[in-house]
Design a protein around this nucleic acid. Structure first.
Lengths: 133, 133
DNA sequence: ATATTATTGCAAATCAGTTGCAATAAGTCA
DNA sequence: TGACTTATTGCAACTGATTTGCAATAATAT
């Protein structure tokens, strides 16, 4: 997936250097703001952390990026080019694995037993990756 | 469930006024630190917010209280007198409903499709409660 | 090229949560 | 009970993540 001018312009956004760079960094893997910022610095790019926050906020609004919160309350961002899926987080090294599940049965069960109108859910797994086992 | 001296003493903890009050507040419903602190103030109790944090940390260690993180990264605490269960959070008013699910199938599926050693998981639902529908 | 306005970077503010430390109070034992 | 030991509390100051205000900058439209 590429970040292109039309796509942004359609919603009144502009295609800028920081946006392109942040998008590029996200291509590698899901990352936190701190991770992204660090990568930008390693690339010798002088992009402010505030810009990273604002850019991610916009990307999420545009459905270009998905935000996930893990245990410690820190958000991890990833390109929204996959289907709906979940994550397994390594409690030791922080590695993240994507995981796809059929949740139909689960969702049916929930809708049956809850009095709420369910609109979304979050499901994350925690454990140890192969290297850290 | 009551907070009692023996239970605490067994682990080297003491039964104090703040602990009793915080425990009492938690009896009503699951709440965040801010909620709990506000309730204590309404009761005209001069208990510091730091004490709330520390007390909850201890209660969690003692398995008296369970901590859950919702979307915004703010923890909600509730008495751990239930079995393992999940929550449905009203996106409008913040009301929380408990929900029990059979996750065996789900867990089996995950263990099969992931290379990680799964140790725990988090599953929360979001939607609208009856009043807010 | 110029005008318009979204975007950026900086500094300062905010907000949740943590830490150090001296004062206080709970439990213990004579 | 009263003195002793040590957990606990409250305050103040600190941290780390995120947000906000604003002037300078840069992307698009004319």
């Amino acid at each position: 997936m590429e970040l292109n001018k039309k796509q942004l312009a359609a919603q009144g956004y502009r295609l800028t250097k920081p946006r392109q760079e942040i998008f590029a960094v996200l291509k590698h893997k899901p990352q936190s703001v701190a991770d992204i910022f660090e990568q930008l610095q390693q690339k010798k790019l002088k992009i402010d952390k505030v810009t990273v926050y604002r850019t991610l906020e916009n990307f999420v609004k545009l459905n270009l990026v998905a935000e996930t919160q893990f245990k410690d309350g820190i958000s991890v961002y990833e390109l929204a080019d996959h289907e709906h899926h979940h994550h397994v987080l390594c409690e030791n090294c922080g590695r993240i694995e994507d995981i796809c599940l059929d949740e139909n049965l689960l969702m049916k069960a929930v809708k049956k037993s809850s009095s709420f109108l369910i609109k979304s859910h979050r499901l994350e797994f925690f454990g140890l990756c192969q290297k850290c086992c």
